[in-house]
Nucleic acid binder design. Sequence first.
RNA 1: GCCCCCAUCGUCUAGCCUGGUCUAGGACGUCACCUUUUCACGGUGAAGACAGGGGUUCAAAUCCCCUUGGGGGUGCCA
Length: 480
Amino acid sequence: MTVRVRFAPSPTGHLHIGGLRTALYNFLLAKSQGGSFILRIEDTDQERSEKKYEALQMEALRWAGIDWDEGPGEGPCGPYRQSERLSFYKKYADRLIEEDKAFYCFCTDEELAEMKEKAVKENRPPHYDGRYRNYPKSEALQRIAAGEKPAVRFKASLKSFILEDLVRGRVVFPENMVGDFVIVRSNGLPIYNFCCVVDDWLMKITHVVRGEDHLSNTVRQLMLYEALDASRPQFAHVSLLIGQDRQKLSKRHGVVSVDHYRQEGFLPEAMTNYLCLLGWSHPQEKEIFSQNEVVDLFDTTRFTKASAIYDLEKLKYINGQHLRRLSNEDILKRCEKFFPKNHPFFDGSNSWKIQCISFFKDQVQFFNQLPGLLDDLFRIDSRGDDEDELKAIRGLESTPVMATYLKSEIERLLSENKAFAQKDDFSHWMTHIKKELKIKGKPLFKGMRAVLTGAAQGPELVGLIPLTPLSVLKDRMKRY
RNA sequence: GCCCCCAUCGUCUAGCCUGGUCUAGGACGUCACCUUUUCACGGUGAAGACAGGGGUUCAAAUCCCCUUGGGGGUGCCA
């Protein structure tokens, strides 16, 4: 049987990293089995769903290298937006009512709230009390004809259910775990648990990989599969991503939007590499890999059960590793649109220059900084904690001496109509300062940096300076 | 409250199913040293964990139970 999996986001916000991880797991499972990955949009909550988020999420997925075989606009099991599948849900809801497996419920919000309150007070599970469970259908239909709008509730099965979960193992849901639950709202729109079952069934989904937060609700879906006489897929409830405070990861924890990391300049391959490792382990404990490298070994037996704390430090490390793995061509390709054509970056003998990219202290921001290259990239803003160090360096007696010399050198090159210093020029400066000016060690390196970049820390100068226009250097040295 | 899930270094994890090879391995982070045209990178090393208690067993991180802790669900959200 061909594996068919799906990722089913609801377009109520930006794609967040937890969602991306779920999508990735589904994607890898499908690809490892030669199966299909389906994108379904769960937009039955009209209050919160927005079209723009659908587009944004799709773009974020593509950025991360996760492409779908079937999805909105493409595929044999469409439509792939739940808002466009209403007729299916209606059909099966009607059938359940017909078969007396579901019923109309005319309860008001107030009644429901009261019911819940009472149950809690009496130490009972706050379930629906079955008020309309056996309400005569003829009367219900009359009230509907008269304009009343009931919800449709499913008659919860009274037995226990067993789930053989690919991650959790055997999970037993005791009987009476849930009450009769709503499958269609009074406004006519179906509810998640119901749509999900109908769609997964109709779309022939074989494996459902989703967050553990859905585990408890699965019992409802199991009941529906049974009632609809639908084949049920395999489930894999993966651990949740949590924040430093061990709570479910959310906006409170800062940056959870995939778009943010994209804008910051994180590489998509690093992002998915890291996310993949947060809840799954490589059989050889390899930590740095591409999607292609992992796809053949991916399987559901190596999922972790415990939830994982999202850690930015490790993401940065992994990003750095991927950055270093990029070939010169890759880097050039990514830089091309940002550099002016006559920039020495492209002068042919640039391998050392390309190396310097990975030397940037805040390497993750490198690509992001490129647009403002000439004026901004090399004007490295000193950070707050650099200030004292910078002041100390400027206070050294050797620093102005060095500055005077460097200024004259830059003037000389400019008078020769050069736009950039060469690596050799830089070496020459270093030698001169060491031999003739007798400045060495920390005053030399720190001083050079302070004078040429205005910062106490930064990328290696030998890589940086030849990429910085002389005019910018000159401008910077006005203060000396 | 009720139900479900989970529990190895600060963090991500390997090991658990199929007890012994585990004085528990790796990675991030931290610290130290080395290298170096600073920082970074790289190298070497250090500190750092089986939540607690009972069982079962010759033997338990591994199997069972309890406790504790954490998370999730309990919606006419997904």
